[in-house]
């Protein structure tokens, strides 16, 4: 730094890129490391999914970097291409004999995550907009009370909610699985409100002066401007709903509404001190996160690229 202070303007112009290069190299090394840390466990999921599922093999070759006796057998099990009752014998005692109706569960996961995303995003955005834009009595108090919804331990909520869903006769229906998240989530409202607050009001006010209705302003001006955050929220909600486990496990265990995460249960530990069917579980995990990864590849670019606010600046 001392040398820098002695140099004149022209010298700095020459030095600047060089200093930046060093910084850049360090940054990229750090980023490379982070990417490795992020991706390696995924590789391990895949590697285990492709490994011979027998525990003998799995544990005796625990540190092999490549799949041991590589096989697609686990994926065939997950996709229901193998009748599980045929694989039960003494040589495969650790293999799950549960059936996986993969395509039904996939469809169910899409229905549940889709409905939750639609309802929650729409109704939460409306509420968030009201909290950010309209003035009405008790506004901030209501908002804060909503926020407290985040602070109630889930375990306290799900038992009464479960009993309610039962009383409504919705156990084993999509409506029952979707209900608690369909109308709102404190998270979604909080999220959208923070973005609406940052949004410049000029366009909305102009539209109001032109005689647009409040809902029109919300729907035609504010929502399009919030495309980016909305897509982000929608994606996050979808993935959150997709990965939900305990609630759909309790409410939607029936075959007809069972979602993928619940179906993976057949690969978990069968006995008190037992180990899960690792290879099957990892194959199931791989298959179940593929749709969300595809979704992210498809929408991800648009999510982040559309948060440019080109509309109002």
């Amino acid at each position: 730094m001392a040398t820098l202070s002695r140099t004149n303007g022209t010298a700095t112009e020459i030095r600047e890129p060089k200093r930046l290069n060093v910084a850049r190299i360090i940054t990229w090394i750090v980023v490379g490391f982070m990417v490795f840390i992020t991706l390696f466990p995924f590789y391990w999921v895949l590697r285990t999914a492709l490994t011979d599922p027998d525990f003998g093999t799995l544990f005796a070759h625990a540190s092999d970097l490549l799949p041991t006796n590589a096989t697609l057998f686990n994926f065939e099990r997950v996709l229901g291409m193998i009748d599980p009752s045929t694989i039960v014998g003494q040589e495969s005692a650790n293999l799950s004999a549960g059936t996986i109706n993969f395509w039904v569960y996939l469809r169910n996961s899409f229905i549940v995550a889709g409905l939750v995303t639609f309802g929650q995003t729409l109704f939460s955005s409306m509420a968030a907009y009201a909290f950010a834009r309209f003035k009405f009595p008790l506004r901030d108090q209501i908002f804060f009370v909503y926020l407290t919804g985040l602070m109630i331990p889930g375990i306290v909520l799900f038992i009464p909610n479960f009993v309610l869903i039962k009383q409504l006769g919705l156990i084993g229906t999509f409506a029952g699985i979707v209900a608690p998240g369909f109308l709102m989530s404190p998270f979604a409202i909080f999220f959208m409100r923070q973005f609406f607050i940052s949004l410049n009001k000029d366009l909305e006010e102009a539209a109001m002066l032109d005689g647009a209705t409040a809902f029109g302003v919300f729907w035609r001006i504010a929502i399009p401007l919030m495309r980016g955050p909305l897509l982000t929220l929608g994606l996050l909600t979808f993935i959150g709903a997709w990965n939900e486990y305990l609630w759909p496990f309790l409410v939607g265990r029936d075959e007809s509404v069972r979602v993928l995460t619940v179906a993976l249960n057949v690969f978990k530990s069968q006995t008190p001190q037992g180990a899960p069917d690792w290879a099957g579980l990892m194959a199931g995990t791989t298959v179940s996160i593929v749709p969300t990864i595809l979704l992210f590849i498809f929408f991800g670019r648009r999510v982040v690229d559309s948060i440019q606010f080109s509309g109002f600046k």
Binding site: D54, F55, G56, T57, A60, Q90, E91, S92, A93, N94, T271, G274
Partner: peptide, 12 residues
């Protein structure tokens, strides 16, 4: 005894 099958899947 419920683990018999488990142990029989060993490589040895």
């Amino acid at each position: 005894s419920w683990m018999i099958g488990y142990f029989l899947s060993s490589e040895f």
